[in-house]
């Protein structure tokens, strides 16, 4: 028989990342089932069901494309692919972050009755978002074949960038979900900030059209960095900008450590509140 696990809790339980993820791993079946439920519930009852996964990005793409390429003129080559990458990556971010603040209150039934690592709810939220993202991203490949855009081996960076993007969202969710459960106003603030951020992120325009003086500020904003990185490998077809990649990795790592520390400090306060 294996040594029994010993858990000691005081009002200052130490922040042990390894313990947290060992626990999370134990609940992997729950994570899988929860993610499945998330995916099944999303379009349950709608006539077209899973097809909406393709239709949604296609329709929004059509609108943006019509407005920005037909009404205003753009000099960006293969604008359709360029636009699609930005919109998809952005949708992935806001689908996850838009629900992060209310994540714990809306799952109060689970959280106040049964013990499981709260991180599972966040991972499941991101996993279902990432699956939808991958499905709609597959349309980009079709689009590239149709528009005869060059497809290079640099596309192999894509899975790595999705993982990196997911970790960044995970860190942000750790912060938003725990603070948001305590300060209920946060979800309204975040929703407003997100709609502002849409314009401060080069989604429909290119960061290069901004004057060189300010372009770096745009790129330092993580939502912009990740979209830039996606475009490097898909739209431009070269390797990701090394400086930007390094910057985004470091940013994500530091942000993760801070937000997970905060999350852990608030863990029991959150479960007492909801």
């Amino acid at each position: 028989m294996t040594e029994p696990k010993i858990i000691i809790t005081t009002n200052k339980t130490p922040f042990n990342i390894f313990q947290i993820y060992a626990d999370t791993w134990k609940y992997r079946s729950f994570l899988l089932n929860l993610t499945n439920r998330e995916l099944e519930m999303r379009y349950k009852g709608s006539f077209l069901g899973i097809l909406w996964n393709f239709l949604n990005p296609l329709l929004s793409l059509a609108i943006y494309f019509f407005v920005f390429s037909r009404i205003t003129q753009t000099a960006i080559p293969n604008y359709l692919v360029f636009l699609f990458i930005g919109i998809n990556a952005w949708n992935f971010s806001i689908q996850v972050l838009g629900r992060a603040c209310d994540l714990f209150p809306s799952n109060a039934g689970f959280l106040s009755k049964v013990y499981f690592p709260q991180e599972i709810l966040i991972i499941s939220l991101i996993a279902s978002g990432a699956i939808n993202y991958l499905i709609s991203f597959s349309l980009i490949l079709i689009l590239m074949l149709i528009t005869k855009a060059s497809i290079t081996l640099n596309l192999l960076w894509f899975p790595f960038l999705v993982v990196l993007h997911s970790i960044f969202l995970y860190a942000t969710c750790l912060f938003l979900s725990s603070v948001g459960a305590i300060i209920r106003d946060l979800s309204y603030i975040v929703n407003t900030l997100l709609s502002l951020l849409f314009f401060l992120t080069p989604i429909i325009y290119s960061a290069e059209t901004i004057s060189k003086k300010y372009a770096w500020i745009l790129n330092a904003q993580p939502f912009a960095s990740i979209i830039s990185l996606y475009r490097d490998i898909v739209h431009a077809g070269h390797h990701p900008n090394w400086h930007l990649l390094l910057y985004f990795c470091l940013f994500t790592l530091i942000w993760y450590l801070i937000s997970h520390w905060i999350f852990n400090r608030l863990r029991y306060i959150v479960s007492d509140l909801i």
Partner: peptide, 11 residues
């Protein structure tokens, strides 16, 4: 599910 405000719980 919850943590103590003071003292120690060992499981």
């Amino acid at each position: 599910i919850s943590g103590p405000s003071e003292g120690k719980v060992t499981i």
